[in-house]
Amino acid sequence: MTNHDEAAAIRPSTLAWVCRHLEIGERIVSTDALHGGITAEMRRLTIGTRHGGTRALVLRTFVDPFHVERAEDSLNREAGALTQLAGTGVPAPGLVAVDPTAAHCEYPSLLMTHLAGRPVLSDEGVEARVPLLARQLVAIHAFQPAKRPRQYATLTTADTVVTPKSADAAAWAAAIDLIRKPAPPYEGRFLHRDFQPGNVLLDVPSLSPADALITGVVDWAAASWGPADLDVAHCSTNLALLHGPAWGLRFSEAYEEAGGVLAADASERLYWQVRDGLACSEEVQQVSQPWREAGRTELTKRVVEERLDAYVTALMDTLG
């Protein structure tokens, strides 16, 4: 086995577990660390087949103590989502095996098929990608699972919001007051719960970037049941931070243009948008670090905070 990256080395018992789930005559010929994840180590495994070809799998491993404590729930959610999505029109990885309690591996792990494509985070071509993202999210929300996943969670509270330095204090105070209110009623949908450009794989023709196609949606560890507005709000926040506040505001329009249905009342839609924006205030560094590693070096913590402030302020301005 050739390791292209020291961090990509698989620990012994995990290696044995992976090998037990390969086809007869197959072997791991190389591993590569996949960058961009926040909660887990990700590796692409190149598998040599018995007929001389290759195929690829992806191994997700939770190693950080904080996330290891929560890995069982996350991996069970992801395994459940991948199992139910198999054979649907949603381009999710296929589940190969899962060890949520580290009964066989050094750390909690999940093995799945590898999907072609890559995340695209550049500003170039964003106007063509936003409708693609919107249509894909509408398709996810249309899925009717045989067994509903667990209820969504919103971890932020009015008391944990971190107001950025030099932020519009009045706008943020009003936003914080807004999420002190009870959540609006909603019609439940199957949620990805972390749908954003970093978790969407695309095939982008080099000669025609506008003809990009979505090849996969990954990271289903937070799959939930809840309001479509919450998934839309989360993607909107990420677009605002990656490409500027205007793109965050644009996404909900694109979602409705694609046939998606959001809360009928504007104030209810605003609640979810603001709640997700404020939630991001608590993890700006966590969110922006993978983007910088992926080449968006200009997205420093300060720049992202400034964009978040502008986005939250723009949302609150819609109140008039």
Score class of each variant (00 low, 15 high):
Leu115Phe: 08
Leu270Gln: 03
Gly80Arg: 11
Ala314Met: 05
Ala294Asp: 09
Asp64Pro: 00
Arg302Gly: 03
Tyr255Ile: 04
Lys181His: 02
Gly89Gln: 10
Pro182Gly: 05
Ala223Pro: 08
Ala294Arg: 09
Pro205Arg: 12
Met1Tyr: 06
Ile10Arg: 03
Lys301His: 14
Arg148Asn: 14
Glu257Trp: 04
Cys105Ala: 07
Leu262Met: 12
Leu213Lys: 15
Asp276Pro: 01
Asp219Leu: 11
Thr157Phe: 01
Leu133Arg: 14
Asn199Glu: 10
Ala158Lys: 03
Tyr186Asp: 04
Val18Leu: 05
Glu305Tyr: 04
Tyr271Asn: 02
Arg292Asp: 10
Arg27Ser: 15
Arg292Phe: 10
Val126Ala: 15
Leu308Ala: 07
Glu305Gly: 04
Phe195Gly: 11
Tyr255Asp: 07
Thr54Tyr: 00
Ala258Thr: 13
Arg269Leu: 04
Arg27Leu: 00
Gly198Thr: 12
Leu299Gly: 15
Gln285Lys: 15
Val90Ala: 11
Gly87Leu: 06
His192Met: 10
Leu202Val: 09
Thr313Trp: 05
Trp225Pro: 02
Gly320Val: 02
Gly295Cys: 05
Pro182Lys: 02
His4Arg: 13
Glu293Lys: 10
Asp309Gly: 06
Asp73Thr: 14
Val126Arg: 12
Glu257Val: 06
Gly25Cys: 08
Leu207Gly: 13
Leu15Ile: 00
Thr61Lys: 00
Gly89Arg: 10
Arg50Trp: 02
Glu6Tyr: 02
His104Asp: 08
Val162His: 09
Pro131Val: 11
Ala40Thr: 05
Arg27Ile: 00
Gly52Ser: 04
Arg20Leu: 05
Ala173Arg: 14
Ala128Pro: 03
Ala7Gly: 14
Glu6Ala: 15
Arg44Phe: 00
Ala92Cys: 13
Asp64Asn: 15
Ala223Phe: 08
Arg135His: 13
Pro119Glu: 06
Arg129Gln: 07
Ala103Met: 03
Thr300Gly: 09
Ile140Leu: 07
Phe251Asp: 01
Tyr186Cys: 08
Ala171Arg: 03
Pro108Ile: 00
His21Tyr: 03
Asp123Phe: 15
Gly248Val: 12
Asp123His: 11
Glu69His: 05
His114Phe: 15
Gly295His: 08
Val274Gln: 03
Ser288Cys: 13
Pro65Glu: 02
Glu124Ala: 12
Gln273Gly: 11
Pro290Arg: 09
Met1Thr: 10
Gly125Glu: 12
Ala169Ile: 10
Gly320Leu: 06
Leu230Ile: 06
Ser109Lys: 03
Arg60Ser: 09
Gly320Lys: 09
Thr157His: 04
Leu270Asn: 06
Pro197Glu: 08
Thr154Trp: 03
Gly295Lys: 12
Glu298Trp: 09
Ser122His: 12
Cys280Trp: 14
Leu241Ser: 07
Ala134Thr: 13
His51Ile: 03
Thr318Gln: 15
Val304Phe: 11
Pro108Lys: 01
Asn238Arg: 14
Trp291Asn: 10
